[in-house]
Amino acid sequence: MSDGPDELEKNDGQRFDRLPETPADRTVEGRVSREEVLEYFADRFAIPPETFDGHTFWEKGAGKIWIYGGEAPTPVEIEAMGMTCLRTRQEHWKPTTDFAQRFGRHAEACVIELDRERARRFAAGEDQELEWDGDWGYLIAAHEVGVEVGAEDERSGDGEPVDRDALEPLGIGLYVHGELRSMVPKGRQRDL
């Protein structure tokens, strides 16, 4: 009984604490580890763990995980660092819209492509009926936008557009019962 969870500290929601490397390094009750966060992004979205080699993960608030690329000691009491990326301490972990837009281009699974009209409804925060053969739960919604002018064409000056992976993440959607629910927060929703 001496190494049970009753020896772990309580989470202090007012400060940033860096996530422990592995579950075995955990000192705070219920806190996820870096390893588990990387596993989640790899298992769910096939985002390679090395994508985050330059970043650290932190918890502030109950289950709110932040991704940060700068320097800071742990713990640290400041207003914000980097961005909130994931909500843990609940059955189904939920990534944020801002995380999906920043890192979602690395995802190769659970990405649902929307046409322009569906993307417009998604950005406006609407739910929509949609067929999807993949897993239920949180998905990265994406659409084709801003088809890039290829660098070579630019040099030669003919300006022919070249389609170089034009799929761009919009945010997080929740797929259940044949319906895609937009998780774009109110402040980020737009009528386009």
Binding site: H55, I67, Y68, G69, G70, A72, I78, E79, A80, M81, G82, M83, T84, T96, D98, Q101, R102, G187, R188
Partner: peptide
């Protein structure tokens, strides 16, 4: 400030008050 930093994806930015 926080809203804009997250919307623009600046992960190397820490905010103090």
């Amino acid at each position: 400030l926080r809203f804009n930093a997250e919307r623009l994806g600046a992960t190397n930015l820490a905010v103090t008050n």
